[in-house]
């Protein structure tokens, strides 16, 4: 059911994009893009501030290796960091290489055949998706910046290394498409993942697939007028939207989906892109006993003090010859 709704929602966005184009032309696209990014920026900041505003009362890292204790025991500097640099390393591994997800993976020999478990592909697909997405985003900078930064040019050149077809075929496009397809298939096929999947999960994937498909078709099939796109994009970036030549329905769909997805990010699990940096089980050093962590809302609690305890058990303590603080009750006995 969740899948159906998600398909419906993504379809509706596409229809709205096309309809908007017919009615409002490229001005409509500009409005959608600005609205989408405004919601994204405001929402994203709001959520991050909301997280950041919540204190971290306790230092609760999950330790995944040997602690730093005695000098002759080798500690796991990255899996169980006790220093800031170690934490940076751990976070780096986590964010750049998805270290924890990799832990899941298990390549094993089963009945003499090498089997990569299902989870290995999850790690691979997740990594492939996120990295190719980053490459594609950076490549897109060439549409928004003039002159195009050398880094972007270089990246595009590496990405188009195979120089197949015309225009050059980008490896990242292929990788992204495959990874997304795998991730979606996995949601459908794996009963465990299907069981836990919700509207939000399908919607995000389907929107991304829509974005990728429309982008790929513009590049390889319908061959959008790149000069016109760039003119439009530069205008958008400079807050001076220009009215370019017709960009086509595919472009409208592409940009609308991006805008809608961007606007959806702050309301969804896609916030993990910001949240991953803040996770207290990962971004704190396991130096708990070496450096005191302060809880800003620490408050006094009702305890049973030694004096009360001694009063409660004075006679028995005396009889057992256990040293006392005072020979007589210091308060009304509760015993």
């Amino acid at each position: 059911m969740q899948v159906v709704y998600s398909f419906g929602a993504v379809g509706a966005v596409m229809v709205a994009a096309a309809a908007g184009l017919v009615i409002g032309g490229s001005a409509w696209i500009a409005v959608v893009a600005y609205a989408g990014f405004a919601v994204f920026l405001a929402g994203f900041c709001y959520r991050v501030v909301q997280w950041a505003a919540a204190p971290v009362p306790f230092r609760v890292p999950t330790t995944c290796g040997q602690q730093t204790s005695l000098p002759w025991i080798k500690s796991a500097a990255l899996e169980n960091p006790s220093t800031t640099s170690g934490v940076l390393g751990r976070m780096g591994l986590e964010i750049l290489l998805f270290r924890s997800l990799f832990r899941n993976s298990q390549a094993g020999l089963h009945e003499k055949r090498l089997i990569l478990s299902e989870q290995k592909y999850l790690w691979l697909a997740a990594l492939a998706f996120h990295w190719s997405m980053l490459v594609i985003l950076v490549r897109h900078l060439r549409l928004f910046v003039e002159p195009v930064p050398a880094l972007v040019v270089a990246l595009a050149r590496i990405d188009g290394f195979f120089q197949l077809g015309a225009p050059d075929f980008y490896v990242s496009d292929m990788v992204l498409a495959c990874a997304l397809a795998y991730l979606l298939l996995r949601r459908f096929r794996d009963p465990v993942v299907r069981y836990i999947s919700q509207f939000s999960d399908y919607f995000a994937l389907l929107a991304l697939i829509g974005i990728a498909a429309s982008g790929l078709s513009m590049r390889y099939v319908t061959r959008v007028d790149v000069v016109a796109v760039k003119q439009f994009a530069l205008g958008l970036a400079a807050f001076h939207p220009v009215r370019p030549a017709a960009l086509g329905a595919m472009f409208a769909v592409h940009l609308t989906l991006i805008s809608v997805l961007a606007a959806y990010i702050p309301f969804s699990k896609l916030m993990h892109m910001g949240g991953v940096f803040l996770s207290p089980t990962r971004n704190l050093a396991n130096n708990n006993r070496a450096k005191r962590h302060v809880n800003p809302w620490n408050y006094p609690v009702k305890t049973h003090s030694y004096a009360e305890w001694e009063d409660d058990f004075r006679a028995k303590l005396k009889a057992a010859d256990i040293p006392l603080e005072a020979d007589h009750a210091t308060r009304a006995s509760a015993d």
């Binding site: 094993g108 089963h110 089997i115 794996d190 009963p191 465990v192």
Partner: peptide
């Protein structure tokens, strides 16, 4: 349950 059956059947470790 269905999903657990699949896990029980397929995970070889």
């Amino acid at each position: 349950p269905d999903l657990s059956a699949r896990f029980l059947a397929e995970e070889k470790d």
